[in-house]
Simulated scan of single mutants.
Amino acid sequence: MRRILITGALGQIGCELANRLRQLYGDDAVLTTDIRQDLTEATLSGPFRLLDVTDGNAFYEAAQEHRADTIIHLAALLSATAETKPMLAWQLNMGGLLNALETARALGCQLFAPSSIAAFGPDTPKNGTPQDTLQRPATMYGINKVAGELLCDYYFHKYGIDTRGLRFPGLISHAAPPGGGTTDYAVDMYVNAVKTGKYTSYIDKGTFLDMMYMPDAIESVIKLMEADASRLKHRNAFNVTAMSVDPEAIAVSIRRRLPNFELDYGIDPLRQAIADGWPDAIDVSAAREEWDFCAEYDLDKMTDDMLSSLFGKQLYGKKGAILL
């Protein structure tokens, strides 16, 4: 990676990944793009361009003019939102990915396209979910992700495009608000613990889901993209995770710092049904063996950093912070 284009750069992953890549490769080396523009660091610290990823010509022009050798394609409609707008999800998630792949093919770019634990389904083994296993998701988002994994494999085998990807678990971050995912309750819980001292979870107790703190997710993307290609057997959909938790486990971790934190439940049937179809805990041995994946943050270490960061934003009102 030397000249990088990021789509969906103002989303939860993109804003932090853009900042990290600019630290590593230089501000001008990273072109951030999104369908909207704001005044956060992702748009102000280096080149930014408005881009609708469903416009293939505009996608190609942006990558060509930037002289990109790497595309990190993050623009997508996430799980819960996709389930309420399935046709839009298909058009954006699949149309945008095809345009990313075709641009990468035309320009010879390396391509990162994220997958998700949503690519699994109700019949997938729930615990120790293997790297290679049954994938029959019951949501539009999950269907998009399975199709995306296969498309990236196809472009690698047919055209030799260096496609790589991760099956992300729920990602927890204090830098940007969540964007319509099923695991967003975890971020909301930390924000409300600082803001009000209480939270009503839309996911039920005992619903275990894989999670990862955003710094680990960012470093995983970079490590995979810089990995020796000869080691990669799976390439496009590596299982990665740092912990398997339910709302009660997060609440217990929060109460180490905020003993009076209150958690109750108001279950959202849509998001609960989605979560029930996902694994409890996935196996990451392929990522460890093929590119030395290792997560730094466990639940308590993540909680301490989340709360410290959120309290700091509440006190000092940093630009781009979640408003508390």
Rank of each mutant, 00 (worst) to 15 (best):
P130E: 08
F59H: 10
K223Y: 05
S220V: 04
G148W: 05
A138D: 14
G170R: 05
D27E: 12
N192H: 10
T81L: 14
M94H: 12
L24T: 06
S201M: 09
R20Y: 07
A80R: 01
A175P: 02
N19Y: 06
T139D: 01
K145E: 01
N19K: 08
T43S: 12
L98K: 13
L310V: 04
T133N: 02
L50W: 01
N260S: 15
R167V: 04
E41R: 08
G317W: 08
A295F: 09
Y297G: 02
T81N: 12
P125T: 09
K195Y: 11
D292P: 03
S79C: 14
D283F: 04
A175W: 08
M94C: 12
A104N: 08
P114H: 02
D27Q: 13
Y213H: 05
P114T: 07
Y185S: 03
S309H: 10
D55A: 06
S201F: 00
L78N: 02
N239W: 05
S79A: 15
Q110E: 15
G46M: 01
R288S: 10
A217S: 13
L44Q: 12
E41L: 12
I254L: 09
L5C: 10
G317I: 02
S116N: 11
L50P: 04
R105V: 07
F48D: 00
R231P: 02
A63Q: 11
V284Y: 05
S173T: 03
A251M: 02
N57Q: 15
V252M: 11
D52V: 05
L74E: 00
I203R: 04
R256T: 14
I250R: 00
A89Y: 07
L324P: 02
E289D: 14
M214G: 05
T183M: 11
Y155E: 01
D246F: 03
L31M: 01
L299K: 09
M214V: 01
G180P: 08
G277Q: 10
H157A: 09
F261P: 00
K195P: 03
K313I: 03
G128E: 11
T84F: 09
T241I: 04
G317E: 04
Q37W: 02
L111D: 07
K158R: 15
L150E: 13
Y190L: 03
Y202T: 12
L51E: 03
H174D: 09
L97Q: 06
L270M: 07
A62K: 06
R255L: 07
D264A: 14
I143H: 10
L107A: 12
P114W: 02
R20E: 14
A321D: 07
V187K: 01
Y155H: 04
T32W: 03
M189E: 05
Y199I: 09
